[in-house]
Amino acid sequence: MLTTITVNGEARSLDLDPRTTLLDALREHLLLTGTKKGCDHGQCGACTVLVNGVRINACLSLAVAHDGDEVTTIEGLGTPEHLHPMQQAFLTHDAYQCGYCTPGQICSAVGMLREVEAGLPSHATRDVRADAVLDGEEIRERMSGNICRCSAYPQIVAAIAAVAEAES
């Protein structure tokens, strides 16, 4: 099926098997292998990308369902020479070890900060009518869909808190 997806700002037309997930379309067809496959079942978050600015698990979504969508992957956030502030924070805080969950963590963190900015509450939000205060507990709750088996969790919280602090 012919599908056009804007990936990292560039319109990409693909003739796809309708069974192809957004994750495999990115990895195997567009060779954007920064987005990782950790479980292919929506259980780990390694495949997190931003679709129209919202974080999703790319493994749980068929690519043909994204015709006309704007997708941002880790490659679209920054490059080794020009890191996105979240990428820089992960580097500075050592918020990763093997690096396999990392692109998903970073995309998830970027999407998560937007959710907070939009006033979306989480399970950890004490007063859902007030603006969420992004403390450690909020970050942990909101980032629990991204597993890091290397367990860089404290460093990930520190990196995200630093970016949130700099942004506010």
Binding site: L83, L91, Y100
Partner: peptide, 23 residues
């Protein structure tokens, strides 16, 4: 010294190729 990881810029940008991702 706690220097940043040597391969860190590649890992945080998704440009470090793991086995299945090598071209």
């Amino acid at each position: 010294k706690g220097v940043d990881r040597y391969e860190g810029p590649l890992k945080v940008t998704g440009t470090a190729p793991y086995a299945y991702e090598v071209r």
